[in-house]
């Protein structure tokens, strides 16, 4: 049953992705990318990652769609047809995909309880979290406590990206610099 649901959701995801490849209207592309995020959130629920699905639904379908629409309002709404052929990218993609699939052949089966990922750190967190943290949601206890340094770093990355966006397009400037620039202009006008 799990496999069946996975395959149905995957077919919908693939259809969305392929229509993104073929569509020229950027507005439609942005909407389809929102659809893609919602479908992937569904798939994440079937994979037991409820926290991640929650985040993906809020971020992917909410914020990123709004930001992309904002970008479209500031730039252009249609994609120009590309002049060169699609053959080389297609070959590159095929080779990369084949290499990745070759890489998965060594991996343990999907859902195998004895996979290397499930024998060391993960179960340890699940066992010790009951005693040490006493919080029902293990994802929260790892996120904020066991891996608190990691999350501090991630927060700093979000902070830095936000500052970078503000520097690039918010049009904020320090008043002193503006005044200095005006003074320079005045001096140039006099001389």
């Amino acid at each position: 049953m799990q496999t069946f649901i996975d395959i149905v959701l995957f077919l919908m995801l693939a259809a969305t992705a392929i229509s993104i490849v073929r569509t020229k209207s950027l507005f439609a592309i942005v909407m389809l990318s929102g659809v893609f995020s919602l479908l992937s959130a569904l798939l994440l629920v079937t994979l037991d990652a409820v926290d991640v699905a929650f985040t993906e639904a809020a971020v992917g379908a909410g914020i990123s769609t709004v930001l992309m629409l904002g970008t479209l309002a500031l730039t252009s709404r249609t994609e120009k047809p590309s002049s060169h052929s699609n053959f080389v990218p297609f070959v590159v993609v095929l080779i990369t995909g084949a290499a990745l699939i070759y890489g998965t052949l060594d991996m343990p089966n999907f859902g195998d309880p004895n996979a290397p990922a499930h024998v060391h750190v993960g179960p340890d967190y699940l066992e010790r979290s009951v005693e040490e943290i006493d919080v029902p949601n293990v994802v929260t206890s790892i996120l904020a406590s066991y891996r608190g340094f990691d999350t501090l770093g991630e927060t700093a990355v979000v902070f830095t990206a936000g500052i970078a966006v503000l520097l690039l397009i918010s049009g904020l400037r320090r008043r002193r610099e503006d005044e200095e620039a005006d003074e320079v202009d005045d001096n140039e006008g006099q001389s």
Partner: peptide, 25 residues
């Protein structure tokens, strides 16, 4: 299920939208 990948990806999604907004800028 193993909660460790969930934690890594949870933070990666939010960092992903922050970097996407930087790209859009």
């Amino acid at each position: 299920s193993n909660p460790l990948p969930h934690v890594l990806i949870l933070t990666a999604i939010v960092v992903g939208i922050a970097t996407t907004s930087l790209g859009l800028a």
